[in-house]
């Protein structure tokens, strides 16, 4: 029985995240439409929601082409890596008090590790394409992700110091006992939010793709489902980062009792997904050098100051 529940949770997470990502493609376009005074997709199915399925069918039906000049193995491997990394990241997400795939005592580190792995996918994809745009996109993405990785990890260290644990379940439980982390760790929250956007290379930080200068960046040469996997990885990343923000800074499943805990978790995550989309609708893309100098010149010092302050307060308390 316990085993069954575990399997249910595992497969629920797996398919739920897949379905969420697919639906997010449609949902994002509807929301963008709403904010840009358009309708967005509205032809397939109810409110155009069938578009998600239509999109998938289209991606599967498209010619699965590997350029003759590409490195075949790496070219095929790269898109699968991002999906694997992102899905593994979901393993440590506590949806509700008992609904999680794994409660690792180093859950937060595991999450950081998995998101870091995604950089290989983008870099290898760009490199294997043997195309100058893809290569530039891949290099940018590597630099960007590695840079923002630094602040992403450091921004969470304040939380870890206060909660005294790497386990995500324990972090949520700490918040139940004390206060949601976004208040004591507000700066940490902001930095994690920004770094999270950069990590999932979403707009406005989608310079690895940057279609106005690099055609389509690292996935220029990709088509069919291999391209679909990059897309999937990106949307999985959005969901993962959103649920992480909800978990770490907004109390995860915590909430008034009139709704079940898992619902609170999804509500909070959903709010951040919407925020991600709002960013895409509103904020223009910075220049690449601006992105990098913003990270190293502002975010890094800010993170360190935050860490220092947290440490000082903890020691003083």
């Amino acid at each position: 029985m316990v085993e069954l529940v575990i399997y249910l949770v595992i497969f629920g997470t797996l398919f739920g995240s897949f379905a969420g990502a697919a639906l997010l493609v449609w949902f994002e376009r509807r929301l963008l439409g709403l904010w840009q005074d358009r309708l967005g997709p509205n032809r397939v199915g109810l409110f155009g929601a069938g578009l998600a399925i239509a999109d998938i069918i289209k991606l599967f039906a498209k010619e699965d082409w590997i350029p003759p000049f590409a490195d075949r193995f790496v070219f095929v491997f790269a898109p699968t890596a991002i999906v694997m990394a992102m899905l593994l990241g979901f393993a440590v997400v506590p949806f509700a008090p008992d609904i999680h795939v794994a409660d690792l005592n180093i859950g937060l580190l595991f999450f950081l590790g998995m998101t870091s792995l995604a950089v290989y996918s983008v870099l290898l994809g760009g490199l294997a394409s043997n195309n100058k745009y893809a290569l530039l996109g891949g290099l940018r993405s590597a630099a960007q992700m590695v840079s923002y990785e630094v602040f992403m990890g450091l921004s969470l260290m304040g939380v870890v110091m206060q909660a005294g644990t790497f386990s995500l379940v324990d972090i949520v439980l700490w918040q139940a006992d004390n206060i949601w982390f976004f208040i004591p760790q507000f700066i940490g929250f902001l930095i994690f939010l920004i770094a999270g956007i950069a990590e999932s290379h979403r707009l406005p930080f989608d310079l690895p793709e940057a279609e106005h200068e690099l055609v389509a960046g690292f996935h220029t040469e990709y088509s069919g489902m291999k391209f679909g996997m990059f897309m999937l990885g990106e949307y999985l990343g959005v969901i993962l980062i959103s649920s992480m923000i909800a978990t770490i800074f907004f109390g995860g499943w915590l909430g008034p009792d009139f709704l079940p805990p898992i619902f609170w978790f999804f509500l909070k995550s959903f709010a951040f997904i919407c925020f991600f989309i709002l960013l895409r609708a509103a904020i223009p893309r910075p220049r690449y050098d601006q992105l990098m100098s913003f990270g190293w010149k502002y975010l890094l010092p800010l993170t360190l100051i935050n860490l220092l302050a947290t440490g000082a307060i903890l020691l003083w308390a």
Binding site: G33, D37, R38, L39, N42, L278
Partner: peptide
């Protein structure tokens, strides 16, 4: 941009 949630759409179907 968020305020546009409440403005009508311009799309003609």
């Amino acid at each position: 941009v968020l305020l546009h949630t409440f403005t009508p759409t311009d799309t003609v179907s």
